[in-house]
Design a protein around this nucleic acid. Structure first.
Length: 566
RNA sequence: GCACCCUUAGCUCAGUUGGAUAGAGUACUUGACUACGAAUCAAGGGGUCGUGAGUUCGAAUCUCGCAGGGUGCACCA
């Protein structure tokens, strides 16, 4: 595929002194309106050196660049030099590329097999998998897919919250009030009840906390009863979590959670002492980060046990040794910004040069209309319920609009869950939002179903056409403005994925799909595709096919399924 | 108290390294299914880009102050 920006830079360089081709390349932009061409270079910056007005410079340069096989004409609009691509060759270039690469269109081997770890989802065992977990789970999964698509050896790690004093509480609570059969029947809610009751009673009776600490220590020390209960809690929880992961189509390469690192803590403590980083403070041990304008984190409690931050340090070291990662990414809420800054700084101080390859990818909070999420206060919305309701609502719509559809339930699953995924991936990660049923269950406008509907529409056209799509068409026939808008959008796909990866922002892709779908729908409503004129039909079918491939690839990256009929 | 984040149309949000007239969706008003799928398309109104200054040929975008909202800051994770 031709890099038109590079062509622009090539033509431009040599006409301006003291500016390299790379400089020009970086300056090339897409004009706001296609009437101003397809690429443009602003000339303001040359004004000082050349001692002429930007308008005059642009005019002079434009007049010196002749039309060639890539550009029909080069003009100037005020201080900009505007390049108009040759539609025919541009169109042919893009469409043959897409059909040639198919499901690989948009990919690029940037990774060359290097490993990228994406840690995401990481729910707490024995607690509900609720709407608050949706962001890390979905965003993380998409980043994982993007890195894979771009040639990295991506590794999905679910850092389960399966360790800590809370399990001492659960063991203690179960021994007091637990009923085995209840938990077997209804694991998470029953375990949650125990957890809540324990916390309530502990407020009145603080000795319970000591008991919990005792049981957590026993767990760490390998007490059989404690381990048995803990393993049981974990097993029943995983069954529930896996049900949701299956609905979302998510798979992990590793479930090494917090407990996995419990035996790797002493080494970290020892190393910190050796490197003279650990300092006593009120009986506990900290690393002094005051020189870096950060609060100093507690590494080891006064009773000798370790904390969350110690485990993250141990995990990072383990991962470097095990996977030799090129990047180690954490998709975790923005509330933990400080935590990540702290431990990454500590790893740096320990002398590990790979500290700079660790990256926290934060995202904003989800709250409910009634207020912030609170498991203990019962202010939660279960993720599974959200997915189920979305599927139900979709089924209703199908029964209303397309009652004869085959595999209704299957399609409803794909569309309903797709709608939830799409919405989660539609905005900048960092924005907070309030969960609303109304918004989640609206399927018009910029939504997943819109993208899926457009895809189904292309399938339907290709199906009706019935023959194999050929790239041997008369590209001169693709000349309508609406068609060319589609072509230009198609050509951007690769760049969009790349910036999505660089910024770890899935929403670039989500927005791109909507943009492409909108442009295709405008074309569809403006031009009839399956026309009498064989040659014209072939060219338009080819365009439809290219859109079909590109939307599919985009949705695949987002982990959204695309039914051919809906 | 200190640190970080957010503020763009009634609502939800885009606006990539500063660049041409700040864009979508939604809601509202109106039009298009005897042409390839109306979960669609077309048209319309709607803006002191929180506020004040500064840098610049040029600021929604960069810098500083202020306001409003959020998050975090030692024995939880």
């Amino acid at each position: 595929m031709i890099d038109y920006k590079l062509k622009v830079a090539e033509l431009f360089s040599g006409l301006v002194n003291d500016v390299t081709m790379e400089d020009i390349y970086g300056m090339v932009e897409i004009p706001p309106s296609s009437q101003l061409g397809d690429f443009a270079v602003p000339c303001f910056r040359f004004a000082k050196v050349m001692r002429k007005s930007p308008n005059l410079i642009a005019e002079t340069i434009a007049s010196q660049i002749p039309a060639d096989e890539n550009f029909d004409k080069v003009t100037n609009e005020g201080p900009y030099v505007n390049f108009f691509v040759s539609k025919t060759s541009f169109t042919k270039d893009i469409l043959t590329e897409i059909v040639d690469k198919k499901e690989k269109y948009g990919s690029k081997d940037i990774g060359q097999g290097r490993s990228v770890i994406v840690e995401f989802s990481s729910p707490n065992i024995a607690k509900p998998f609720h709407i608050g977990h949706i962001r890390t789970t979905i965003i993380g999964n998409v980043l994982y897919k993007i890195y894979k698509f771009m040639g990295f050896n991506a590794i999905a790690i679910n850092h389960l919250g399966d360790f800590g004093t809370q399990f001492g509480m659960l063991i203690s609570a179960y021994k007091k009030w637990g009923v085995k059969e209840d938990i077997e029947q209804n694991p998470i809610p029953e375990l949650l009840k125990l957890y809540i009751r324990f916390n309530e009673e502990a407020e009145k009776n603080p000795e319970l906390i000591d008991e919990a600490r005792y049981w957590f220590k026993e767990l760490e020390n390998g007490n059989e009863e404690a381990i048995g209960l803990w393993q049981w809690f974990k097993d029943v929880s995983m069954i529930e979590f896996n049900r949701v992961y299956k609905m979302l189509g998510i798979k992990f390469d590793s479930f090494a959670g917090e407990s996995f690192y419990s035996d790797k803590m002493p080494r970290v403590i020892e190393e910190l002492i050796q490197k003279d980083l650990l300092v006593d403070s009120q009986g506990a041990k900290i690393v002094d980060l005051s020189a870096f304008d950060m609060p100093s984190p507690l590494i080891q409690k006064s009773d000798g046990s370790t904390l969350y931050i110690t485990r993250d340090i141990a995990a990072a070291i383990y991962r470097k040794e095990t996977y030799d990662f090129y990047k180690n990414i954490y998709v975790v809420a923005a509330q933990q910004n400080l935590h990540f800054q702290q431990w990454m700084k500590i790893v740096e101080l320990m002398g590990y040069e790979w500290a700079s390859d660790c990256l926290h990818v934060p995202f904003g909070m989800v709250s409910l209309e009634e207020g912030t999420l609170s498991t203990r206060k019962g202010r939660v919305v279960f993720l599974e319920d959200v997915l189920k309701k979305a599927v139900e609502k979709t089924l209703e719509i199908i029964n209303e609009r397309n009652p004869g559809l085959e595999n209704k339930e299957d399609v409803a699953k794909k569309v309903g869950i797709g709608a939830v995924l799409f919405q989660e991936l539609y905005n900048n990660r960092i924005k907070d939002y309030t969960f609303s049923w109304e918004k989640t269950l609206s399927f018009e406008g910029e939504t997943g179903p819109y993208a899926q509907y457009t895809y189904a529409r292309t399938c339907s056209i290709l199906n009706k056409y019935g023959k194999k799509v050929s790239t041997n068409v008369d590209y001169n026939l693709i000349k309508d403005d609406k068609e060319f808008e589609v072509i230009k959008a198609l050509s951007n796909f690769g760049e969009v994925i790349e910036s999505s990866m660089e910024k770890n922002e899935p929403f670039y892709i989500t927005r791109y799909i909507i943009d492409l779908a909108q442009k295709f729908n405008k074309f569809y409503n403006n031009c009839h595709i399956l026309v009498e004129d064989e040659e014209l039909m072939k060219s338009r079918v080819l365009l439809t096919y290219a859109v079909n491939i590109t939307i599919k690839n985009g949705l695949d990256l987002l982990g959204i399924e695309a039914p051919e009929k809906m």
